[in-house]
Amino acid sequence: MLSKLSPQAGRILISEPFMMDPNFKRSVVLLAEHTEEGTLGYVVNQVSDLEIGDVVEDFAAASHRVFIGGPVGQDTLHFVHRCYDLLQSGHDLGNGLYWGGNFETLTILLQNNAIAEEDIRFFLGYSGWGTGQLDDEIDQNTWIVGNVSHPDILFNEDMERLWKEVVIDMGPKYAHVSNFPTDPSLN
């Protein structure tokens, strides 16, 4: 599976169908930053058993789920949202998606239940690649680079199906991959 797109903020990485690394098996990673120094992103389809109130005491009133953003810095909290009109902050990732923002404003909004769960994703940790590492993995067909054709797909409630839906959304060239078994030895 050759990817023609290059990684950049706002694009997604889709793991190859037989990746066995438990951190990235059938994962979709939203890229937040891609520079010469490296790449940072968040796995958007690995939900934890935690709610945001379990992680941040000031957010006790909120019941938003927390996702595992990746294996790096799992003691850090990050967020991606599509409610710039409320937060008035965040790095623009395109398609109405924003990374981070003013934490004090976020606290007030969550305490007042003003942000719907379908408009924000919280992540413990992140996925990171050093200089050239992600490009090497793409060259080895570990990842497909895709565009976010519509941001609703990243806020899908069915985490199990998200990988499959994103692959199908890439078009007929990739759609058949969505039916590959998770373990090729069972084929």
Rank of each mutant, 00 (worst) to 15 (best):
M1C: 02
L2A: 06
S3V: 11
P7R: 04
G10Q: 05
S15N: 00
M20F: 12
D21F: 06
N23L: 00
F24S: 00
R26W: 00
L31V: 05
A32P: 07
A32C: 15
E33H: 09
E37C: 06
G38P: 07
T39R: 08
L40V: 15
Y42M: 12
N45V: 00
S48D: 09
D49S: 11
D49H: 07
L50G: 00
D54G: 08
D54H: 15
V55M: 10
E57V: 10
D58S: 15
A61V: 15
A61T: 13
S63I: 13
H64S: 05
H64D: 05
V72Y: 02
G73Q: 15
G73P: 14
T76D: 12
V80T: 06
L87T: 02
S89C: 06
G90D: 06
G90F: 10
H91W: 13
L93N: 01
G94W: 05
G94S: 02
G96W: 13
G96P: 06
W99T: 05
G100H: 09
G101T: 08
F103L: 11
E104V: 11
T105H: 08
I108L: 14
L109Y: 08
N112L: 12
N112G: 11
I115W: 06
E117C: 10
E118N: 09
D119W: 08
D119S: 05
I120C: 07
G125F: 03
Y126R: 03
S127E: 10
G128K: 11
T131C: 12
T131P: 14
G132K: 11
Q133Y: 12
Q133E: 14
D136N: 08
D139S: 04
I144F: 05
V145T: 06
N147F: 13
N147C: 12
N147A: 10
H150L: 07
P151N: 12
D152W: 13
I153P: 05
L154C: 03
N156G: 02
E157R: 03
M159N: 03
L162G: 00
V166R: 03
V166G: 04
V167M: 04
D169G: 02
K173C: 10
K173V: 15
Y174E: 02
Y174I: 13
A175L: 09
L186R: 11
